[in-house]
């Protein structure tokens, strides 16, 4: 497969550029068509509202048989996202299906920001806080959003 980019990736990229997902920007890297620079806006009425979160997304050689690799670059206080920005999301792991797309992955990540799931945690301390004292956890998440995800 050296050099040639599968039709699937070309078409997906074209569509992603033509009809972008609201609140999400995904741009392929100039040097590597499998690497995307992603910016997700914090969803309204979530503790992440007002923040812009940078992510990286990479399509491995086996894509779409294997899931894309996605990681938050911006620090975020979330029970399903760890210190290194790795995301605990079923469709990125065992629930991946080759019929899913970059678009559906990004939408799911946006949904995860709207509805954190402390029962399936990746970052245990954060999840604990979220369960024991949700108000405090939300306050911290807001604070982090202001500190790390707001420009200027």
């Amino acid at each position: 497969m050296a050099g040639g980019l599968p039709r699937r990736i070309i078409k997906e990229t074209q569509r992603l550029m033509a009809e972008p997902v609201p609140g999400i920007k995904a741009v392929p890297d100039e040097g590597n068509a499998r690497y995307f620079h992603v910016i997700v806006e914090g969803p309204a009425e979530s503790p992440f509202e007002g923040g812009t979160f940078k992510l990286e997304l990479f399509l491995p050689e086996e894509y779409p048989m294997s899931a894309p690799k996605v990681r938050f670059m911006t620090k975020i206080y979330h029970p399903n996202i760890d210190k290194l920005g790795r995301i605990c999301l079923d469709i990125l792991k065992d629930k991946w299906s080759p019929a899913l797309q970059i678009r559906t992955v990004l939408l799911s990540i946006q949904a995860l920001l709207s509805a954190p799931n402390p029962d399936d945690p990746l970052e245990n301390d954060v999840a604990e806080q979220w369960k024991v004292n949700e108000a405090q956890a939300i306050a911290t998440a807001k604070q982090w959003t202001k500190m790390y995800a707001t420009r200027g």
């Binding site: 086996e62 048989m65 294997s66 469709i91 629930k95 299906s97 080759p98 019929a99 559906t104």
Partner: peptide, 24 residues
């Protein structure tokens, strides 16, 4: 073919391979 091959060879799945569609 590609899907089944990946499941079998890379993930060592044989017992329960489900349809390639999401959530099926």
């Amino acid at each position: 073919t590609h899907y089944l091959t990946t499941k079998i060879m890379d993930e060592g799945m044989g017992q329960t391979i489900s349809c390639a569609a999401h959530n099926c």
